[in-house]
Design a protein around this nucleic acid. Structure first.
Length: 487
DNA sequence: TGAAATGTTGGGGCG
DNA sequence: ACGCCCCAACATTTC
């Protein structure tokens, strides 16, 4: 009897190192690749606009890759609990393979699918696609989930090498009859920008992910420690969106790093490569936290922040969102985000610090904005990052750590090239004043064609005063010891 | 994965 | 020659 398997692509939009696909191929003679767009499964965090834009292009890429192997991708939208049984009946599939997803709503959704399909007589196999190892059940000596990165990092590394990546299958046997499907654009909603960032060097899909990985390990990783902090140059891996959709997996990157170490053999190279691998473990840590503290997307991990007196300042919020705070490095970042769906991580920290400390606006509002506008939106990473900056999360920045947007700009965008790229009205400002135009002499401003308050805003808040205010407010939360209990 | 305030040191100008 | 002051440069502490 012919065995037919549905492979449900989710956060694993790749053919290489895809355990669902390989397992299905090992047990079935015919494969039905499916993607079901199910916003409802994401609970309070439905996929944002930028992420959908990337997804549409990534699905098109996956479909093309499948067609090159004699197959295709069936795309549907709706409730998997309804769609999967009917697809199974239509295709006579007896088994379903899917990648495990992590997050409170996603795990509930998966449990529901499994329960539903068991009833329909379909064998369900779930596979780990996203993480190096499953780190969510790691516990410290007190039997609790980790709240600090370094001990977690040590423990996670002791789990040993992640499994070696599986090769991409060269051929995928098609079903006798293809079920109906929708085009990739079906995942888009009105107003989504279908070609977001397409002119900016991004290439959604597995091919683009591998090209970026090769470029990174061939040319960039050797100076990663310095380069990753420089928004004005191409120095970070820029793999976040590829990872978020699973166009490349963390295990593949881990092994690529390992290969780079073996090949380079150099002493300097080792620290550089290790710094990158460490970032992969930050991602593991983010998932560890999200799974064990499932309320953290909305609530601070440290309960003493639950009653933090955040400001209510719609004007400030709009200025931040639209990149007109008057602080060039912040505005450059926010505009890069809006235009391309991505922001350099160093600038994310500066912009987030400005929102939560200078403006005293709730980190949750910042997290929502990023969620909507990032192509790489990832609930675990986004939550960890924002709580870290706000000082209310795991291994958080000390409350008194307030980024100075001028100094950060001068240090990490020393020529002002990043600011000039994203805040073109400052393009003619001399380097000396690019990060603090309000202090420039009138003559310099007029030579640069800048009319403060008109062509570019004055700072919406004085950073020195804002810092003092933030320290005073944060001071009030310092002593109490509340913490969120593990789930 | 910070910055500002405060403390210390040492070189050079100068009486 | 010497002590004094200034201040840059660096180190430490504090927020």
């Amino acid at each position: 009897m012919t065995r037919r398997a549905i492979v449900m692509f989710r956060n694993d939009l790749r053919l290489a190192d895809n355990q669902s696909l390989s397992a299905a191929l090992a047990s079935a003679e015919r494969i039905i690749p499916v993607y079901i767009h199910a916003p409802i499964a994401h609970g309070d965090w439905p996929q944002g606009s930028a992420s959908r834009s990337w997804l549409a292009r990534s699905l098109a890429s996956l479909d093309a890759d499948l067609r090159a192997r004699g197959s295709r991708l069936i795309i549907r939208t709706g409730d998997p609990n309804q769609i999967l049984p009917s697809l199974a009946a239509e295709t006579l599939a007896g088994e379903l393979h899917l990648a495990r997803r992590h997050g409170p709503a996603l795990r509930r959704a998966e449990a529901s699918v499994v329960a539903h399909l068991a009833g329909a007589g379909l064998e369900v196999h779930s596979h780990e696609a996203a993480l190096l190892r499953r780190p969510d059940d790691l516990r410290n000596n007190q039997g609790e989930p980790y709240r600090m990165f370094t001990p977690f990092y040590r423990a996670a590394q002791q789990l040993g090498e992640p499994a070696s990546p599986l090769p991409a299958p060269s051929h995928l046997p098609a079903p006798e009859v293809w079920p109906n499907g929708l085009p990739p654009e079906a995942v888009l909603e009105p107003g989504d920008r279908a070609h977001l960032g397409s002119d900016d060097g991004w290439q959604p899909g597995e091919t683009g992910a591998h090209a970026r990985m090769r470029l990174f390990f061939d040319e960039l990783v050797g100076s990663y420690i310095e380069g990753r902090d420089r928004p004005d140059i191409d120095g970070s891996s820029r793999l976040s969106a590829h990872l978020s959709f699973g166009e490349i997996g963390a295990r593949q990157l881990w092994h690529a790093a390992s290969d780079a170490l073996a090949a380079g053999g150099g002493d300097i190279g080792q620290a550089q490569v290790t710094a990158f691998v460490r970032q992969l473990y930050w991602r593991e840590f983010a998932y560890h936290l999200l799974v064990n503290f499932p309320l953290t997307p909305e609530q601070p991990l440290h309960e003493r922040f639950a009653s933090f007196p955040w400001a209510d300042d719609p004007e400030g919020m709009s200025a931040w969102q639209e990149g007109r705070t008057g602080y060039p490095i912040v505005d450059a970042g926010m505009r890069q985000l809006a235009e391309t769906g991505w922001m350099h991580n160093r600038v994310r920290m500066v912009a987030a610090s400005f929102l939560t400390k200078d403006l005293l606006l709730p980190w949750q509002d910042g997290a929502r904005w990023f969620w909507e506008h990032l192509t790489d939106a990832d609930l675990a990473n986004n939550t960890l990052g924002w709580q870290w900056v706000a000082g209310c999360g795991a291994d958080a920045a000390p409350y008194f750590r307030v980024f100075n947007p001028v100094l950060q700009g001068q240090k990490f965008d020393p020529d002002g090239a990043y600011v000039k790229r994203w805040v073109p009205e400052l393009a003619k400002m001399p380097t000396r004043w690019i990060h603090r135009p309000w202090e420039a002499p009138d003559e310099v401003l007029s030579d640069a064609g800048v009319a403060l308050g008109q062509s570019y805003p004055r700072p919406i808040i004085d950073h020195a005063e804002a810092r003092k205010r933030a320290l005073a407010v944060y001071e009030t939360t310092r002593k109490s010891v509340g913490r969120q209990e593990p789930f």
